[in-house]
């Protein structure tokens, strides 16, 4: 009797747990838990806080309506940091993608060493976001750093990278371009998908190397370029470590990337509510830019499905 009921309940449990809907959710549970606790709840809280004058220091939460959003528009540092971030994105993303494509193009050639090279070139991306590399970068471009020592050796005058408002952002852009690894891997995968027969046909017709690249490789790769462009644009907008460690936003806010500005407002100036409003404003800006990229994509992204 007892075993019979336990057997039947066991069976219903089994049935339940093995149904597609349940097993899927069970496997997704760790992600769902992590997403809700560490992303969704903080996102909703930050939305609420953006309408308050919440401050970590004294913990007051007073509802102030749209005050934070209004003051966004009179904030000199904010407009400067927005412009600097746009400059950073506009320069670093194309540079990074061009570099990634170039290296992927070279590394897709069949050779025994390819997998080693690919790992080597991926290395900067693995360690690139870390504080340690940012510190190394700071030393390289310092007044008495490696680059200035070399410049002096070959008779050039030293460049004050981080002291000059116009120059300070370029070492950060270079550092971002140097971390091309993840885009490179995706490009390499895309390059392998392009049928060899296209190239053979082009060669028969007498196409030169660069013609093959621009007429075959780029169009066939354009969906992947779009993917990389969107991903890298979003991550470039969120760049924080470089600016925080290397320049601290200076000189005169010339490297005050948006994420660093948000951090300063939230943790240094104790204006968490305002920082939340800034983040939501950034979400709008980034959405518009991503939307524009997708809108323009139909003019330059080649899809084989459309042709048939």
């Amino acid at each position: 009797m007892g075993t019979a009921t336990s057997n039947s309940s066991k069976n219903t449990f089994r049935k339940w747990i093995y149904s597609d809907a349940v097993v899927g959710h069970v496997f997704a549970a760790p992600f769902i838990f992590g997403f809700v606790v560490f992303s969704l709840v903080p996102i909703l809280m930050s939305f609420y806080y953006s309408f308050t004058d919440f401050s970590l220091g004294n913990k007051q939460v007073i509802f102030i309506g749209l005050e934070n959003f209004k003051s966004l528009f009179g904030d000199e540092v904010l407009s400067k940091s927005l412009l600097k971030t746009l400059q950073y994105v506009l320069l670093s993303v194309p540079l990074k993608l061009a570099f990634a494509l170039l290296v992927a193009f070279i590394l897709v050639k069949p050779s025994k060493m390819v997998s080693i090279y690919r790992s080597l070139y991926y290395l900067p991306s693995l360690i690139g976001g870390s504080v340690a590399v940012a510190l190394v970068w700071k030393q390289l471009f310092a007044r008495k750093g490696l680059f200035n020592s070399i410049a002096k050796e070959i008779g050039l005058s030293a460049i004050n990278w981080f002291g000059d408002e116009k120059l300070a952002i370029y070492p950060l852009i270079l550092m971002s371009a140097w971390q091309f690894g993840s885009s490179m891997i995706i490009f390499a995968a895309g390059l392998k998908e392009i049928p060899v027969s296209y190239y053979e046909a082009a060669e028969v017709d007498g196409a030169k190397g660069w013609q093959k690249f621009f007429r075959i490789t780029l169009p066939c790769l354009s969906p992947i370029v779009l993917y990389n462009l969107v991903m890298q644009t979003i991550s470039a907008f969120m760049t924080f470590t470089q600016a925080f460690i290397i320049t601290g936003g200076g000189p005169n806010n010339a490297t005050m990337l948006y994420a660093l500005n948000v951090y300063n407002q939230a943790f240094k100036y104790n204006k968490m509510g305002y920082a939340c409003a800034m983040s939501w404003f950034m979400l709008v800006v980034m959405s518009i830019i991503t939307f524009l990229i997708f809108k323009t994509s139909k003019f330059w992204v080649f899809s084989e499905a459309d042709q048939s």
Binding site: R143, N160, F162, G163, A168, G248, G250, P251
Partner: peptide
Amino acid sequence: PDAGASAE
């Protein structure tokens, strides 16, 4: 020192 040197 300017801002760059100060950051060092």
